[in-house]
Simulated scan of single mutants.
Amino acid sequence: MIIVIKTGTPEAEISRIGQELYKSWGIMSEKIVGRNKVVIGLIGDTASLDPMQIQETSPWIEQVLRVQKPFKRVSREFRHGEPSDVIVSTPNGPVHFGEGHPVVLIAGPCSVENEEMIVETAKRVKAAGAKFLRGGAYKPRTSPYAFQGHGESALNLLAAARAATGLGIVTEIMDTADLDAVAGVADIVQIGARNMQNFALLKKVGAQDKPILLKRGMSATIDEWLMAAEYLLAAGNPNVILCERGIRTFDAKYARNTLDLSVIPVLRSLTHLPITIDPSHGTGKSEYVPPMALGAIAAGTDALMIEVHPNPAKALSDGPQSLTFDSFDSLVREMAVIGKAVDRWSTQPAMATA
Score class of each variant (00 low, 15 high):
Gly81Cys: 09
Asn114Thr: 03
Pro91Gln: 11
Lys139Leu: 14
Pro102Gly: 02
Ala207Leu: 03
Asn36Asp: 15
Pro91Ser: 12
Glu152Pro: 00
Ser48Glu: 13
Ala255Asp: 05
Ile275Gln: 11
Ile17Ala: 07
Arg16Phe: 06
Gly246Cys: 10
Leu323His: 06
Leu65Lys: 15
Pro310Leu: 11
Asn114Ala: 02
Leu65Met: 08
Asn311Ala: 11
Pro310Lys: 08
Pro320Cys: 12
Ala220Asp: 05
Arg216Asp: 00
Ile14Pro: 10
Ser219His: 15
Leu65Ala: 07
Asn195His: 12
Leu259Gln: 01
Asn156Asp: 14
Thr7Ala: 10
Gly206Thr: 07
Ala336Asp: 04
Pro274Ala: 01
Ala130Glu: 04
Ala200Pro: 00
Val4Gln: 06
Pro10Asn: 13
Ser75Thr: 09
Val67Cys: 09
Asn239Ser: 13
Pro59Phe: 02
Asp180Ala: 14
Asp318Cys: 07
Asp260Ala: 03
Gly300Thr: 00
His96Phe: 05
Ile306Ser: 08
His101Trp: 04
Pro140His: 14
Ile188Ala: 06
Ser143Phe: 10
Pro320Glu: 09
Arg124Glu: 14
Ala296Glu: 02
Gln148Tyr: 10
Val33Cys: 06
Gly282Val: 02
Leu65Asp: 11
Ala299Pro: 00
Asn257Phe: 14
His272Asp: 13
Thr301Trp: 02
Asp343Tyr: 11
Ser346Asn: 09
Leu158Gln: 07
Arg256Cys: 09
Pro312His: 07
Ala47Met: 11
Trp225Lys: 06
Ser317Asp: 10
Ser322Met: 08
Glu230Asn: 04
Met28Val: 05
Gly108Asn: 04
Asp223Met: 03
Pro94Trp: 01
Ile17Leu: 15
Trp225Ser: 07
Ala296Val: 00
Ser219Lys: 12
Ser153Ala: 14
Val33Arg: 15
Thr301Tyr: 01
Ser58Phe: 06
Asp209Val: 01
Leu213His: 03
Ala186Val: 14
Gly108His: 05
Leu133Lys: 15
Lys131Met: 06
